[in-house]
Simulated scan of single mutants.
Amino acid sequence: MEKIICMSCQKTIDSDSRFCKYCGARVVSTKKSKINNDKLVSIFQNVCDTLCLNSEYTEQEFEDEFSRFKSYENRDISDNEYYRLLVDIIFYSGFKASTVDKYLDVIHSHFEDYEIVAKYNLDQVEEIKNDKNMIQNKAKIDACIRNAVRIKKIVEKYGSFKKYIDSFKPNSSDECLFKLKKSLEKNFSFIGGTTAYHFMTDIGLNVLKPDRVILRIFYRLGLIDNEEDLFSAVKVGRLFSRATKLPIRYIDIIFVSYGQLNQEKMECICSEKNPKCLKCGVKNYCNYYIGSVL
């Protein structure tokens, strides 16, 4: 028998159940809803309005804070900036952002220049691993060093890291984009399914990173079939971008902010547990909310 996830308690139940045997919530169909431009524009605008309303920002301050994410595409990124993005992704992967934020200056001091890092000897590596002011995760540290060596080889072969990226023509088709994704996963340590998307988002390609926050929100809104469907989430992100005529990185950061805990000036609305549905501007589109009130 097919299994589904209860939208209320997130436990697995039989698909023919009318009520969840764990929490008693009424089971609501979680099949994908029809997607059209008007719906996507409405959802995104209401998410933005809700975020601003439940923050410490004025409307102008909110725009000023997030407008920088509208200019991520077509940026001129140096080889070292590409490396820095890889370093950041490695350390943020699996860790709370608030934890990593406290160590970023130290991390960057050790991994500032890929050419220097690629030449680190064993004593220098051990010094980093024993730095009490550093996140002492040996696997992440080793990955940063291996990636520095790999970037050095790619730059030597292609002339620059950007030329390596451009060689795939990643914005020309989904097929080309995924060829780049596979190459990144093959060549770089700690770059996997989600983190490859993360990197491609941060360098300005037309793709959002389908992390657990994005997947949770899109699933609750009925835009994807399940919270494991990375590819569908990427496609939905592109649909949002086309419908709103806004850059994909801006779409990404708005939805992440909507469901991310422990933000300094904004309230998390669509949290995994105990979401603030009554404050949510898109609750009428949401299977989770509809299931909780039936």
Rank of each mutant, 00 (worst) to 15 (best):
E73Q: 07
S292W: 02
I269A: 06
R216F: 02
K129I: 11
M7D: 05
S183W: 10
N54S: 12
L180M: 08
F66E: 00
I5M: 08
K21A: 07
S93L: 00
N187H: 14
V234T: 10
L122W: 03
E73M: 05
K34L: 14
I35A: 05
I13K: 07
N37V: 07
K273C: 05
I191V: 10
F255V: 09
P210Q: 14
S8I: 05
R220N: 15
I191C: 00
A143Q: 02
I128H: 08
R68Y: 09
G159W: 04
G259V: 03
C52K: 10
V100E: 10
V117N: 05
S183G: 11
R242I: 06
K11D: 13
K129E: 10
N287K: 01
F19T: 14
P275I: 06
N226I: 12
C176R: 11
K265T: 06
V106E: 07
G281W: 06
E59M: 08
I135A: 12
K169E: 09
G281D: 06
S98C: 14
K162L: 02
T244Q: 12
L85W: 01
S257F: 11
N36D: 15
C144V: 02
R84N: 12
R26K: 15
S71T: 15
K186R: 11
N37T: 14
S8W: 02
K181M: 08
H110Y: 15
K129G: 09
N206F: 15
A243M: 13
G94N: 03
K132Y: 15
K138T: 09
F91R: 03
I43L: 14
S17W: 01
I269P: 00
A243N: 11
N187I: 00
Y219S: 06
A233G: 13
N284C: 09
D38C: 09
D14K: 13
K181T: 08
F91Q: 02
F19I: 13
K179D: 06
R242P: 02
I224G: 04
D14H: 15
E227M: 11
S98H: 13
D202W: 00
K70V: 03
A97I: 08
C6G: 04
S241Y: 08
I145F: 03
E115F: 05
F218V: 07
P210Y: 12
C270A: 12
K265E: 10
L246G: 01
A139C: 03
I214K: 04
T194I: 08
K31M: 10
I253M: 07
V213G: 06
M266I: 10
E65P: 14
D64A: 15
K11Q: 15
I35M: 07
S160Y: 10
I254V: 09
V207R: 04
Y103K: 15
D14G: 09
Y288E: 03
R216G: 01
C9M: 10
I224Y: 02
